[in-house]
């Protein structure tokens, strides 16, 4: 059994075990087993990086779907893929009297003052689908993006045991999930000099067209030297695949 298959099995076992606890598997329908006992209704404002990002749009749909189960009324203010707009949205949510603000930050650092001000005003501030530094928010909920970067390195080694060359196309520049995925990848690579990253670039947004443009430039520059591509999101990887296909 190769390492990658073993790792796959270990991940599956971990997910199965977690399913026995409070966290459902990542793709099975979760159950609302931890609904609140508060009795009242609190207001929750979801502030995505951009409402046009499919994962964030679906995220709001899920907040709406389950809000009543947890005693919330959920609404959304769009971060519009812009830190200034997202800061304005946080300030507006505080002014509207939100009890809880859930943010998917457009920038890991620039959004911090607004989130701290919201906490100072008594608002519970959660980070959604990205990690944060203690104090920047009240809490965060995310997958372990740094571990994900390490999983990618193991997958490369499984296919190319003697090493390989490839490229990394990051997520939205400055986004905390993109930072952690890159950090995890880089840290794991430090133990594997046989894997060489030829190039690393970030788009300005989670935009598949930008990912494809970056991939096309990299293919032009490095050609068949590219044996692997780590793209930080699947829709961006669609652009990578489009760029990799032969013309016609």
């Amino acid at each position: 059994m190769n390492k990658f298959k073993l790792l796959s099995i270990l991940v599956l076992i971990a997910v199965m075990l977690s399913a026995c606890g409070s966290a459902p598997s990542a793709t099975e329908a979760p159950a609302a087993t931890d609904a609140p006992a508060t009795g009242g209704t609190h207001t929750l404002v979801f502030i995505p990086g951009s409402a046009s990002n499919p994962s964030q749009a679906f995220g709001f749909k899920m907040f709406q779907k389950h809000a009543a189960e947890y005693g919330f009324e959920a609404s959304m203010l769009d971060g519009k893929a812009d830190v200034a707009e997202q800061t304005k949205a946080i300030n507006n949510a505080v002014a509207q009297g939100a009890d809880v603000i859930i943010v998917n930050p457009n920038d890991a650092k620039a959004i911090v003052p607004a989130m701290k001000a919201a906490q100072d005003a008594g608002v519970v501030v959660g980070i959604f689908m990205a990690a944060a530094a203690p104090g920047d928010s009240t809490f965060y909920v995310a997958v372990d993006d740094k571990l994900a970067g390490g999983v990618v390195v193991q997958g490369i080694l499984d296919l190319f045991p003697d090493g390989a060359t490839g490229v990394e196309i990051g997520g939205q520049a400055g986004h905390p999930a993109a930072i952690d995925r890159h950090d995890g990848f880089t840290t794991a690579l430090a133990d594997h000099p046989e894997i060489k990253v030829l190039d690393y670039q970030n788009p300005q947004a989670w935009d598949a067209a930008q990912a494809q443009a970056i991939a096309e430039d990299m293919i032009t520059k490095y050609g068949d030297e590219i044996q692997f591509v780590f793209c930080h999101w699947d829709n961006g990887a669609t652009g990578v695949i489009n760029a990799s296909k032969p013309p016609g």
């Binding site: 966290a23 329908a29 609140p36 899920m62 189960e69 919330f72 959660g126 689908m129 995310a142």
Partner: peptide, 15 residues
């Protein structure tokens, strides 16, 4: 990553 699970967990923790 399961967006639905993360949304639900966010509301659980917020509470």
């Amino acid at each position: 990553q399961n967006v639905e699970t993360i949304a639900m967990k966010s509301m659980e923790i917020a509470n």
